[in-house]
Amino acid sequence: MSKPLDKPRSFQGLILRLQEYWADQGCIILQPFDTEVGAGTLHPATVLRSLGPKPWNVAYVQPSRRPADGRYGENPNRLQHYYQYQVIMKPNPKNFQALYLGSLDAIGIDRDLHDIRFVEDDWENPTVGAWGLGWEVWCDGMEVSQYTYFQQVGGLDLALVSGELTYGLERLAMYVQGVDNVYDLVFTEANEANGTPEVLYGDVFHQNEVQQSTYNFEHANTELILEKFKMAETECQALLALEKPLPLPAYEHALKASHLFNLLDARGVVSPTQRQEYIKRVRDLAKGCAEAHAANEKAVADRAWQ
C-alpha cells in the first residue's frame, strides 16, 4: 500500500510536490495563462484542449481572480486572487482515481489517519457551456479538490472524456500546514546557510489583497470598464467572423470580457436583469470560440510544422 511522503513545509513546497507528481504521470507541466481568469478551468489548456480528438495531459498552476471575493485582507479564508492547481488527462486513464489518491500521498496526507470521501457534485460552467459528473473530494469533511469527468465543453459533446482535477492550493496548504489564517501560511522556508528568512503568504500577498480589494470595490472606473468590455466583445466577434476564424486570440478576448464583467459585478453596478444579459454575452463569445476551435482542430494536421 502506498505510504504518504512527509508533509511539505511550505506553500511552494506543496506546489513543487504536485508538479513533480503529475510530471511523473506523464503530464505536460504548463505555466499559468497570462490573462486574468476566474478559475483554472478557463485556461485554454483546459477549455479548448479538452475539445477535439487529440490526447492531452497537462498540469499547471493558475492564479485565479474573483474580484467580488476580496475582503481587504481581513478574512482568514477569502481572497480575490488565489491559486488553483489544475490537472487534465484526456482521455482519462482507467486508473485516474487512483492517480488522484496518489497525489494526496505525495503532499503528505496520511490516508490511514484521514477520511477521504467522494461526495457527488456535478460540475457546470455555463459561461463556457461545459458540464461534467464527478465529486467534491472531502478530507475529514473538508473539500480538498473538485474531481470531474467532462461530458460537454462549449456546448459540444466530447469524443474523448477529460478527467479534470482542481485543487484549491491555499486551502490545501492550510490543511497540510495546520494553520487557520491563509496569511500565516509558510510560503518559503528560511535557508540558514544563505541567511534567507522564512516568508509567509501574507508577506507576499497581503498588501495586494488590501489594494486590489480597494480598487475592485471602490475605484474601478465602471464607465471605462464597460467601454473595455465592449471592445473585448467586438474584437472577439471580429476574430470569429473572419473567413478563417482565429479562435485562440478570440478566446483571450472572451476571457478579458469575462473578467471585466466580474469587475463590474463586484462594483455592484449590475442589476439582476443586466447580470443575466452580460453572462449570456460572455457565454456567446466563449461558445463561439469553442466551436471555432473544435472545427480548426479537425482541420489541422498533426505536427503541421514538420
Binding site: P91, N92, P93, F96, D122, L133, Y149, Q151, L158, V161
Partner: peptide, 15 residues
C-alpha cells in the same frame, strides 16, 4: 444521470 469515460461510448453513473 450517466456519463462517458475515457474514449469509450459506454455510459454508467461513474467509470
Amino acid at each position: 444521470k450517466s456519463m462517458k469515460s475515457g474514449a469509450s461510448s459506454f455510459r454508467w453513473v461513474r467509470p
